[in-house]
Design a protein around this nucleic acid. Sequence first.
DNA 1: CTGAAAGCGCTAACAT
DNA 2: ATGTTAGCGCTTTCAG
Lengths: 335, 335
Amino acid sequence: MTVTIKDIAKSAGVSTATVSNVLTQKKYVSSELEQRVYRAIEELGYRPNLYARSLKTNRSYTIGVHVPDIVNPFFSTSVKTIQKEANERGYQIMLYDSDSEAKTEEQNVNSMLSAHVDGIISIAPRMELSRLFEMVEVPLVIMDRPPVETDRNVAFIYADNYRGAASVADYLVEKGYERFICLAGPVGLVSNAQSRVNGFMDTLARHGVSPAQCDIRHGDFTFESGYELMKQVLEGYDPAPKPAAAFVGSDFMAWGAMEALKEKKVKIPRDMGVIGYDNIYYSSFLYPPLTTVENPSRDMALNAIRLLLDAVEDLRSLAGISVTLRSTLIVRKSC
Amino acid sequence: MTVTIKDIAKSAGVSTATVSNVLTQKKYVSSELEQRVYRAIEELGYRPNLYARSLKTNRSYTIGVHVPDIVNPFFSTSVKTIQKEANERGYQIMLYDSDSEAKTEEQNVNSMLSAHVDGIISIAPRMELSRLFEMVEVPLVIMDRPPVETDRNVAFIYADNYRGAASVADYLVEKGYERFICLAGPVGLVSNAQSRVNGFMDTLARHGVSPAQCDIRHGDFTFESGYELMKQVLEGYDPAPKPAAAFVGSDFMAWGAMEALKEKKVKIPRDMGVIGYDNIYYSSFLYPPLTTVENPSRDMALNAIRLLLDAVEDLRSLAGISVTLRSTLIVRKSC
DNA sequence: CTGAAAGCGCTAACAT
DNA sequence: ATGTTAGCGCTTTCAG
């Protein structure tokens, strides 16, 4: 049947403690015995039972990762980064996809806790943070959501959406645009969407642009909503005398908006400029290649997992940590 | 500290066995005691320790899922489907991304085994199957790779790439095309790519098309390779007197090819028809919307996880099971 | 129907 | 430096 540490001990002619010691490398073992143990492990095809170890040490070497939607490249890229780094440091990841449902998210947190994960990374959580803090006692990193005050063992990794959007406004004004369209994301739910709108509008205002010069509409970050919103905008649109610039809440939405534009033969950027947000993998493939703002998923994810593992390994506390990364404009052809 | 079954027992005034019995629902317990146990659980905020349970029962209620690249929407869609169904049946998933490296894949399998997963789904494995079978003793489902003979507890879920590609050839001939281009995937590595080429070429031949009428080139399934290959093709291309049709190995490649076409002002489908393969989420958003072949990731994934969990729960053996799903043509605007 | 107790495989005092 | 052993939290015979 399954081969245990006892079998190894017997086969190598040592005690189980010695076997354990060579396995965990925490105590010195003579290389003589070490050799014998390794040979026995090899011969019998021994593989340590992580459950037994976890039961004893109260450490599982697995971390729970939550995403709203793994199909979204922003999230899958993050997960990939996390998974890779975790593996390198000897951890495994348990993946949970909430389908953007706060209720599912809460269930998932419960599952993670039952599984005794050593730590949790929650990406773009929808659920109430206070509730989340209440539930989770292990180290927790929240990614892609604005930091809030708390004395819990929680860190925030965030990209500065406000400034990212502000840089778009700066760029547009500098380029001489005088008419603006803002296709926003779901501002109630996801405050990133709100930050983007705010950064954009505030900065426009600072440049002396009146709110009347900006047509602002709300969608939900999807391709379809970008498409629909732009179709509405186009009903009364005339590129003369000067074209408008559209700042769109996400690259997916921008993509949809571009399709609506193409359908109506409105040339990009000649008749209307388009700028997205996120810089997902596909943005450079669009036609024309999309000018957008980088949402640094890889950087955020790397920060998140490193901080978390450091916390898990008691190298640091997460309390009060809040990393804000810059979100920078990437100029391509669409504006 | 952490609250255990003992605490519950004490608080409810019963034995630990009784608590366990109400938890596992395997033995009858009077509803009187049941109530008391549940109340105690509620009060003390008890959460069963899955490691202790696993150690005892040799069941972990987690399954390992391997993908070559979680960022690829074909794989992330599969993972999402698997995760959802698994959760509903009380299982969690451990995600492993090999970055398309056979070596990493093997390491991952080892990790899964150490973690004592109850079963494994390997999507599009690159590693040698015989080696994989040798390593894995738990139920195993291999998805998106052609079945091989084996008496192991292994099932295959596969989409009929050959017939999918054949239906493309049928469609093209029927539409009156007489010149063909085939931008293939990496045929050595991934035999799906080979099946697609074979299905296409064989069927063309059956329709009396000579190999000389088809310009066949090899890439690697990426956007970039589609772009490059099409650029090469275009060097000597003249749509007159009749346009050619390009069958491209994957939607990503087709996307790249379309960009090359647009750059050279070759109108799709007027000057050249384009057909992809996979029907990833984005294909309908391309311009023009891409005619392609559905690679049924959701169906495959659902089949995979259901079969696997049935096997894990000893409801069936996987040996000899091989499900082949149809891969059907989806006609949009590009051809 | 319920409780006592053994033991899953491992680690970490503690003893030698 | 190595061995002995208790016990992590749970399930599951086996008695009662």
